[in-house]
Design a protein around this nucleic acid. Structure first.
Lengths: 221, 221
DNA sequence: GAGCACGGAATTGGATCCCATATTCATTTT
DNA sequence: AAAATGAATATGGGATCCAATTCCGTGCTC
């Protein structure tokens, strides 16, 4: 007998659905810094009770995306200029090393997927999609390293500064510049030039950091 | 009227108490790898309901300390040799940089506290306390950097390998060697030798990694 | 009119109850 | 006797209810 079966054990629980949705909304800036997360309201929106919502919020807090105060609830945690800068410094430290180790392990398929990402990035006229495509590009390359812990840590760091990165891309010629840098990184990968890809990645992130510092005031929304 | 008042808003919620207790029990190896966490049993032990326990477990999962399967519950997640090694590599990448930046910022008090930590470490005959004292020593030095995000990330990495580190210290002359290396790192800090402290820290962690690889089989408990 | 006390509404934290699923074991069927 | 079936139990996920705390508006006092 042949059935179109799905693995029921893999269906998501309500709390993880709520968690993913809130995470996405926060990192994309749909809920603003300082904005409180009302359990009741969220529960109604997802047509569920507050229990899964509370679990989702406690997970978000563990990730540093929200801060909760007893009996006062959770608010989306913003970053000071210093904190944002620190996270970019962190990324500039770890991501070059990851890509350096990833380069020798990149398959043809990885390179092709990455190429598709930067192509879509450079072709997209929609600023809303830039953030995702930018992230896809880097993640694809990093993933080849097989360093799962590093990947998880990078994801968290990205989550924390995602909003700022998006704002960054639409500012001045941020998107244009990022695009050129992506191509350079990609070419280094194709050439099997690990240290080159690492150095370009480091500059890519440091450049974003510099640009962020300069524009930090106009980013305060 | 003068009362010995406490700030009630700072009293911990049940879920955070449970979380801290479970976290400590897991990283110290009191609950073994693969051991399931029974919500009911834990709730009874803390004289509370399952709700706070569930929130605690979801936070632990977010930290990677446990894995849960729908309708099957949470089990303490162990690390494969590769995963443990990866985390040591991660630490060897980030901790030297943090201490390098911390050295110029270290106060007299910081150095004194760190000295007390390694003194206690070297004097202690109790293997159970070695893990804590070892961690205290490094944390004290790192904290001077003021890099809060880096500190959080390091804490998480430490949590994940804490069990292995403890086992490490009692093996062969692990404790003896760690002690000597601590003193060397501390002296570099006192001398204001940032790059030296960084390099010693890198070797300290790499050494632990090597030793771990060699003993990984005897550590499979 | 300003400031404060009081009280109800809103909100979060926790407890209890119910349902869904997994597992184990007895029972039936062949 | 082996395999399939079904009941019993254990366990986790979620809903509803209650308690504790905070927030906010009203009215009172001076």
């Amino acid at each position: 007998m042949k059935l179109n079966s799905v693995d029921i054990s893999k269906t998501a629980s309500a709390s993880s659905i709520v968690f993913e949705a809130l995470r996405k909304a926060i990192i994309e800036g749909d809920v603003k810094e300082g904005e409180p997360l009302r359990q009741d309201e969220i529960a109604r929106q997802f047509n569920t009770s507050r229990i899964p919502v509370r679990e989702a919020i406690s997970r978000l807090e563990e990730q540093g995306l929200v801060k909760t105060q007893r009996y006062k609830g959770a608010v989306v945690s913003g970053l000071s200029a210093d904190e944002a800068e620190e996270i970019f410094e962190f990324r500039a430290l770890i991501e070059p090393e990851v890509i350096r180790r990833a380069v020798p392990l990149m398959s043809q398929e990885t390179l092709e997927t990455a190429r598709a990402s930067w192509a879509a990035f450079s072709a997209s006229a929609d600023p809303m999609s830039w953030g995702d495509l930018n992230r896809d590009f880097h993640s694809t390359l990093y993933r080849a390293s097989g360093l799962q812990y590093h990947l998880d840590v990078i994801d968290n760091a990205m989550d924390r500064v995602d909003r700022y990165l998006r704002a960054q891309l639409v500012l001045s010629n941020g998107m244009q510049r990022a695009n050129e840098e992506h191509i350079a990184i990609w070419e280094a990968c194709v050439d099997g030039n690990a240290t080159g890809a690492a150095e370009l990645t480091r500059r890519h992130i440091s450049g974003a950091r510099e640009s962020l510092i300069q524009n930090i005031n106009s980013l305060r929304w």
